[in-house]
């Protein structure tokens, strides 16, 4: 028997949901669908779809070239749709990196000066390490969806009422 593993995309996804059988509310599960959220997002917005104290998972609608970012801690990027290249630079100015106690990424005003560390080419299902202290930029040649494992920061957007089942 042949098998088909079902993945989703912005153009093709089915959404499940919460059915309440007790005395609670569906909103307690913060139920959303990443493709629906990305489909309604602006490119490179980072929308929080999961939050556990300061930790977040954020969904990104990736199209074209992103701004450059830097972060004082590791992050990861999981490509859930499309393809992308991630470019890395070690900034010459060590002051570009936010203080270690800061959480989440900081958006830079352009490509930083520094030493090119390399790049990663990824397609669906690939998980990419965004190492602490390295400036990075996403380049998506097609409509893509990224899940970012990070911490709540200046770039994080929370809009639970818009994205979650009520």
């Amino acid at each position: 028997m042949s098998v088909t593993t079902v993945f989703g995309s912005i153009d093709k996804f089915e959404k499940g949901g919460v059915e309440i059988t007790g005395n609670e509310e569906a909103r307690d599960y913060l139920f959303s669908n990443m493709y629906e959220v990305a489909g309604n997002a602006q490119p490179w917005e980072r929308i929080v779809i999961a939050k556990n104290l300061e930790n977040t998972v954020e969904v990104i609608r990736a199209e074209g070239d992103s701004p450059w970012y830097i972060c004082s801690h590791d992050e990861t990027a999981l490509l859930m749709q499309g393809s992308m290249e991630v470019r890395f630079i070690q900034p010459a100015d060590s002051g570009l990196a936010p203080p270690e106690e800061n959480e989440g990424s900081v958006k830079l005003t352009g490509e930083p000066e520094g030493e090119v560390m390399g790049h990663v080419k990824a397609t669906r299902g690939h998980l990419v390490l965004l190492p602490a202290g390295a400036a990075y930029q996403f380049r998506a040649g097609e409509l893509s969806v990224i899940l970012l494992q990070t911490l709540l920061g200046d770039e994080s957007i929370e809009k639970w009422a818009e994205i979650c089942q009520h």
């Binding site: 079902v6 989703g8 996804f13 059915e19 059988t21 007790g22 139920f31 669908n33 629906e36 779809i49």
Partner: peptide, 11 residues
């Protein structure tokens, strides 16, 4: 309490 059905992309 509930039944939660999750399909690809659901969170």
């Amino acid at each position: 309490m509930s039944v939660v059905t999750m399909k690809a992309g659901d969170v």
